[in-house]
Simulated assay, not measured.
Amino acid sequence: MKKSTILVLLSISLLILSCTNAKTERGIKMYSETWDRIINDANLDLINNTNFTEDITLITSPENIVGIDAFKAYYQNFLTGFSDITFTVVDVFGQGDRIVKHWNFKGTNTGEFFGMPATGKTVDINGVTLVKMKDGKIAEEQDFMDNMVFLQQLGMVSSPENMGIINNLYKAFEIGDMPTVLGGMDAKVVWNEAEGNAYADGNPYIGPDAVLNGVFARIGAEHEYFKLENIQLHEMSNNQMLATLRYDAKLKANGATYNVQAAHLWTLNNGKVIAFQQYVDTKKLNDAINN
């Protein structure tokens, strides 16, 4: 092959590559600016046939969302469901008509979200979107994110760590390790004893010190022994744990013993107990005290 022919082919290849790169850069710019305005400016009207193909497709399970109207209705849930929204494109790159976007979404769930009532929770979630462009328009998207983390942040499912945290608190209480028990509580924990229980006179106890002095210290001073038995933990939604158990105890004042059913409802946030509600057979407790 002649040298001149090689140079011509090389020039053509470089020209094609340059045009392809320019096309990709235009697609990335258009895509990033469009989604910034849709989410951060709450401008859903930009989901139109100027920026998206008529058959824009969001790849989802069990059924894809197809068409501008359906696509727009889908994202309406995010703008209706969240306030204080910040949508950030962390990184974006592409090749040809394919774009990959790494994004971050922050917001507070203050409105109905896909038919679910507001939780008031704040979310901060990262994800990746695979994008296909066509003739300068957005033609297809597929989102990838940790849905379990998203639901946990919304308070719709609980953190898998909650059971271990509460289990460790009961173990610490069993051996009298009060620093560990109190250390598992938020600084503003709200603690309520069952109505009718003698220790309910201080409800609500706010903060670990109030719980220590108003509940734990009194239990220790007034009982020869106080044991928690048959503890069973039950995971609940909204970062709550339910414990069903029995109290086996003996009072110092009159030597009376009691063995009663009880239940504890724990609420956690970021690995700390923020609320506690006791339920117990207060009649048996009072019968023992007045024996």
Rank of each mutant, 00 (worst) to 15 (best):
D69V: 13
V149D: 13
Y74S: 09
G127S: 02
S159N: 12
E33G: 08
F113W: 11
A262C: 12
S61N: 13
P117V: 02
G255M: 04
L44V: 09
R246F: 05
K188A: 14
V131H: 00
Y74K: 11
E224S: 14
D177L: 07
P179D: 14
N230Y: 13
I56V: 15
H102W: 00
G107E: 00
L251T: 08
N259S: 15
N167L: 11
M156H: 11
H264S: 08
N51S: 05
A42E: 04
G183F: 05
I231P: 05
S83L: 10
V128R: 06
N197M: 10
Q261T: 09
K272M: 04
I289M: 08
I65F: 02
F173C: 05
L7E: 15
I39H: 02
M163K: 08
N192Q: 14
T108D: 04
M236T: 11
D186F: 08
G176T: 13
N49Y: 07
S158D: 09
N239Q: 13
Y258D: 01
N290A: 14
L17P: 04
K23R: 13
I175V: 15
I6S: 06
Y279I: 10
P117K: 02
G196V: 04
Q261H: 03
A221W: 03
D84A: 13
N238R: 05
H102R: 12
G27C: 03
Y279D: 01
Q278V: 01
E140T: 07
I166P: 02
F226V: 03
L245A: 11
K134D: 14
I59K: 12
Q142S: 13
